[in-house]
Design a protein around this nucleic acid. Structure first.
Lengths: 212, 212
DNA sequence: GAAATAGTGTCTCTTAGACACTATTTC
DNA sequence: GAAATAGTGTCTAAGAGACACTATTTC
């Protein structure tokens, strides 16, 4: 019977980059994802939620299992089997004590198995953002359309066309304009929006702009 | 340390329907997915491949992990943790001894946990068919465009437009026409095609037709 | 000829992407 | 006014979907 651990891949947009939360590196320069050992009769989702609370001090508003990982390499806990979960938190959340944000991909910083889990987790984010509002959970409750577009671009890993993005977004009825404007910064103030999907629509798509 | 089992969700197109392989039902009317217990130091992909060979007598040409499942309900093996894998085999493959094909969703036939795994597996198939040639591994080496379209429709769970499907397929350079025709059946003979993606293209999309 | 299945040509309407513009702020 | 950022109007090319058709078989 393999001992099993649960790894948490906590993602956020930090300073305009996609970053993942890792524990402060040990003297050998290696870091690790936050993890916990699984009990004999685990409830995986609950264990992931508990770990998230323990690390961040609060729950994530979007979490998903990434998969199970096992290979010849070692998990920090020594467990033969790792179950990875991915969670997202709002942009520029401050890292809890003993942890830090690292830009993805965190090459060379993590062990082989956790690096694989991270890579898979980022793919999971890309794949899921279409049907689930996870992008919006990576932004504050109020955001500008430029911020939203940047979030999409960082998760998708490619640039989007501004006019097309806004046109399709308007048609999708995912967001609602607020009567407030962002005043900081150089140029013209940007209007704030909030996530407010039109009710009664089934299977809402969250990727209004796509090209292939 | 939880005991872990590996479940196999083996899918095929059987008599024009999407079906999953289950063991023959016991006297109480319940069936189970093929499964195996995991050793202390498992290699998950290898274990899934071994189980596939043991059940089918041959390897699947496309396999993917679905995820880890654990809840209050019981796995047939008694394991607290299940890792599910999905595999596909060509259409109308005959079921091995002691097993049978069941149309999805196999409601009421499986236990709660395996039913959840099956549902997730079918979603995995839908999500992956875009970037991977898994549809083609569910067909014989030669197939007609009508068969291919039906395969897409069964996996996607919706009808596709014939003219659009063929137009987009031609543009995708995924298949190559053969100089052979299917002669059985009533109407005009259909030309055979084979999967032959144009080389040098990166990130080939396998869902040339889509609407949203 | 009727029925069944395969396969195609054309039209329309939608829309992604390009381009070029206007709008409003700070410096 | 220049620079920076936000936001929009219009054109075009591509393509999905509709429709109607042709093609080739069995009965």
């Amino acid at each position: 019977m393999p001992a099993a651990a649960l790894d948490l891949i906590c993602c956020a947009l930090i300073k305009g980059r996609l970053a993942v939360l890792v524990s402060d590196s040990s003297p050998d320069g290696r870091s690790a994802l936050p993890w916990t050992s699984l009990p004999t009769n685990p409830d995986l989702d609950a264990a992931a939620a508990r770990l998230t609370r323990a690390v961040l001090g609060r729950a994530s508003r979007w979490t998903s299992q990434v998969g199970a990982f096992a290979d010849a390499t070692k998990h920090p806990s020594g467990a033969a089997l790792s179950i990875a979960y991915v969670a997202v938190v709002p942009a520029n959340t401050t890292a809890p004590a003993g942890h830090g944000w690292v830009r993805t991909p965190a090459t060379g910083l993590l062990g082989v198995r956790q690096r694989t889990a991270l890579r898979t987790a980022l793919t999971t984010l890309r794949d899921r953002m279409d049907l689930e509002p996870l992008v919006f959970h990576m932004l504050p409750a109020q955001f500008t359309l430029s911020e939203l577009q940047t979030a999409y671009e960082l998760l998708l890993g490619r640039r989007l066309h501004k006019a097309s993005f806004r046109r399709a977004l308007a048609g999708s009825e995912l967001v609602e304009a607020r009567d407030e404007w962002r005043l900081e910064g150089r140029g013209r103030p940007a209007q704030f929006y909030r996530y407010h999907p039109r009710r009664g629509r089934r299977g809402i798509r969250h990727l209004p702009v796509i090209k292939w």
